[in-house]
Design a protein around this nucleic acid. Structure first.
Lengths: 336, 336
DNA sequence: CCTATCGATGTAAACGATTACATTTTTTGG
DNA sequence: CCAAAAAATGTAATCGTTTACATCGATAGG
């Protein structure tokens, strides 16, 4: 492997001079510079980034810790982070699939010396406790995560409000019995969306009815199952279904279609996230639009600004607004 | 920042001993080991991975170079790579959005010293030339890429055959005028799919008709446009549309719906990739299933096996089979 | 009780860069 | 043409590890 020494030797200069050429420092004569670049090209030399960052203690890399890489939600998050990162010349070190605490822990440790800062998305486990018990080297930004502790910057979306908005809309269309398909147990997004659902019901003077809440885990299948269960109920069938995410809403719509129940004619359906597929469903799915890529972008920017000037940086909790996207799937009952 | 020296000092041992504890080497007395671990825990020490890999010249990291992070295709690829990588304890350094040659070049160079090997996906630019003109340090595997040179390992899917299979199927259903919506200019996947389309036509003794080929760029919008153009043609309207990917097929279906043309009743539609959304369309979209995540997994495995034993490794071109997924959108003409 | 052997630990040289400081070369002004 | 200032280059320490080799006690065999 060709190192800076090889280049220096062949170009008849010291390693310092070669270093100066490649690390952007100037004070190298035009002619010397050309000579060095020529040799470097001939030798196909590229600076060893790892060695460089050892002494500069900068890696120009952001660590991204994510529970899963499956589905559009996470990929959009990554895309957002990447967009922001590459604008500032940063790279991304991605680490996914951390089901338990110790895995998360070791993932964070493994990043030591490889990244300048970390973005953690941990919607199930409370990672903030973890963070504070870790090498305090790099700044951290949490994304849509459970964070009991403050003192850590975070970016999240306003799940509660988004849910309230949607349920309010359904109520406005005359729905009185609105079912909810919940997200995965202990998942913070799902939990907050449930609270928003409750809030809207309360606000309208409607009873929160346990029988109208169905278990789910964000998968399409669980949405399908929930809807089947709902249809099996002998009486007081809900006239609307609000699912904690789009995938489950889609699953539910499949179940309704299979059962010959018309949407939105017999039952209205609404989801959350507004994943791209939503608008292509037929009927097109009403949803709560979440700026997913924007979320990632925001987190990355926060992190990089903290990196750029740690003194100036103040930890802050940012909350991003959602927007209601009303399509066909939640028309007023009986008007399908 | 706490280093190995701090731990050594507080534990009253030399750095070598501490190193031995954390790098898994044994020959450290039980008691000493415990003492060291205790101190490390108290100090929240984590080994500096960068420094370590400087001397071991192993990073346990795979570089992934991808043109784009947008859409399900790429995210699935990454997921596949990650799945394989994490099983072997590898991390992923992701670099995306390389529109031209020099960006690609610098992306590869930036990986020097950060990764042990690289997976390159470059469906537009011929990256193989680039690879051979680069620091020859790490092994490379190309993914669905333009590769004029041999001597580089690659994994790709059998685009041509997949397309032929689908067009054959359409012909079998009695279609004689089959339109093709092409992929982005110079994109290898699109090009190969076009060839497969031609092959199937020729095989059946059908004429390849330039007027039946429409430009596209893999986006939904371009599919929509292509279909509108097609509908505007005064006569000999095709009875089937085969799009070079699902997104365009979906766009085309939107255009047909907007124009009141029934699918598959009036015109059959088929796509390529079998993205998750395909089965949820109505009518459900027939497509050529591509094992996307499998592609990434395969590439990662190849790369890591090369890493594990460079001598044993032989460069090889792997081609993955596609499978036909027939759903509703391509029923026989007139039988909608 | 002595010595060969072995296990546990320490010493110090790498790894490939950057950079303060020293030194040399070039330029500038009188 | 010379001295001082400025510019270009070199020397060597450093970043945080790993690891070959040296060292040191303890153990075992005779």
């Amino acid at each position: 492997m060709v190192t800076i020494k090889d280049v220096a030797r062949q170009a008849n200069v010291s390693v310092a001079t070669v270093s100066r050429v490649f690390s952007g420092a100037n004070a190298v004569r035009e002619e010397t510079q050309r000579r060095i670049r020529d040799v470097a090209e001939k030798l196909r030399y590229a600076p060893h980034t790892g060695a460089r960052s050892l002494i500069t203690s900068k890696t120009e890399t952001l660590g991204v810790i994510i529970p899963d890489l499956y589905g559009e939600f996470f990929s959009e998050i990554i895309r957002g982070i990447d967009t922001a990162a590459r604008q500032t010349g940063f790279h991304l070190l991605v680490s996914s699939s951390h089901s338990d605490r110790s895995e998360l822990d070791s993932a964070i440790r493994a990043m030591r010396g490889r990244v300048d800062g970390i973005i953690i998305m941990s919607p199930d486990l409370d990672a903030s406790l973890l963070v504070s018990s870790l090498p305090a080297d790099h700044p951290v930004v949490m994304l849509n995560s459970v964070t009991r502790r403050s003192g850590i910057s975070s970016v999240r979306i306003d799940n509660r409000r988004g849910a309230t908005d949607m349920v309010r809309h359904l109520i406005g269309h005359g729905h009185r019995r609105i079912a909810f398909i919940a997200g995965a147990k202990r998942n913070i997004d799902g939990e907050q969306r449930r609270r928003g659902y409750h809030a809207a019901l309360n606000e309208a003077g409607l009873h929160v009815n346990e029988a109208h809440e169905f278990a789910g885990d964000f998968t399409e299948d669980s949405g399908y199952e929930a809807a089947r269960e709902l249809l099996a109920r002998p009486r007081s069938r809900p006239t609307a279904i609000f699912a904690a995410n789009d995938s489950m809403a889609i699953g539910a719509m499949s179940a309704l279609r299979d059962a010959g129940v018309s949407v939105p004619g017999d039952i209205a359906v609404a989801g959350f996230d507004d994943i791209p597929i939503a608008r292509h469903m037929s009927p097109a799915l009403s949803s709560v639009h979440v700026p997913i890529a924007g979320l990632g972008e925001r987190a990355a920017r926060r992190l990089m600004s903290a990196l750029a000037d740690p003194s100036k940086h103040v930890t802050r909790q940012e909350v991003l607004r959602t927007t209601l996207v009303i399509r066909e799937s939640c028309g007023p009952p009986g008007h399908g």
